[in-house]
Design a binder for these strands. Sequence first.
DNA 1: ATGATGCATAAGGAATCGTTTATCAAACAG
DNA 2: CTGTTTGATAAACGATTCCTTATGCATCAT
Lengths: 136, 136
Amino acid sequence: MLNSPPRRHVLPRALAAVPDGDLAAPFESLGNPTRLRIVERLAATREVRVSDLALQLGVSQPRLSWHLRLLRRSRIVTTRREGREVLCRLDREAILDHLGRFRALIDGRLSIDPTPSPAAVLGVPTRENPLPEVLP
Amino acid sequence: MLNSPPRRHVLPRALAAVPDGDLAAPFESLGNPTRLRIVERLAATREVRVSDLALQLGVSQPRLSWHLRLLRRSRIVTTRREGREVLCRLDREAILDHLGRFRALIDGRLSIDPTPSPAAVLGVPTRENPLPEVLP
DNA sequence: ATGATGCATAAGGAATCGTTTATCAAACAG
DNA sequence: CTGTTTGATAAACGATTCCTTATGCATCAT
């Protein structure tokens, strides 16, 4: 008699696994002012307790926890447990890796989408831009 | 007797002006898979017609127009009108500027938020992290 | 002028994000 | 063991995003 539970989504994209070379995920993380402030703070302090970070930024503890989860998933920060505290710091190595891949993309040296678009497959000529010339 | 019009928002943040040094805006732009594909495509083709871009990426024309607006606002792409067509290309100079400011932030050389947090103003000591030491 | 083309914008809905207020669970202190 | 502290998670809501369809508005061709 009971309705099936109103389970809304299968998975809130924020929790889905992040493919390794994905650039959208880290950029999306950095595209939020609060998370950018977190990064800024971490850039100035080798390692910070989560609760201290929350105080310093004026962010509620659950909210900071959420943001840290996103930043962890997209490899912007790392956290380690110390007793009942959690210390977090920037994952500078991973960040530089992201930036490097982005530079490659900007320079036309990297494809983020191996499968060509439907139109490209069809070979749509589109006047005089049939899939324009590649940069030298 | 009539209700005031249900005008929902004052301004859809996506349309608000972007402060010059803002980093969140360009990152937010790049944090979307479709827009990242646009950037990738533009990186390989000096200049592209909007309609060609839409075909190549399999994006509807109105949607591409919307994405291009965001990318323009956050200084990722530029567009110029040629007759009734619009050609767009990467704003590489601006992009490198964004990346440079981000590197500065990562290295602790840049503050995105001049006004200290409420807790910081109060001088909250927070155990042994009263506003931790700055990196050497 | 009339029609066709290229792009921008409005309108609308589903999904997601950002936040707050409860809990929950684990680690430590007494 | 009881209670406290620290952080993660759940629930719930408004605000935004992302997309489609429809419409507007120039520009070019006939």
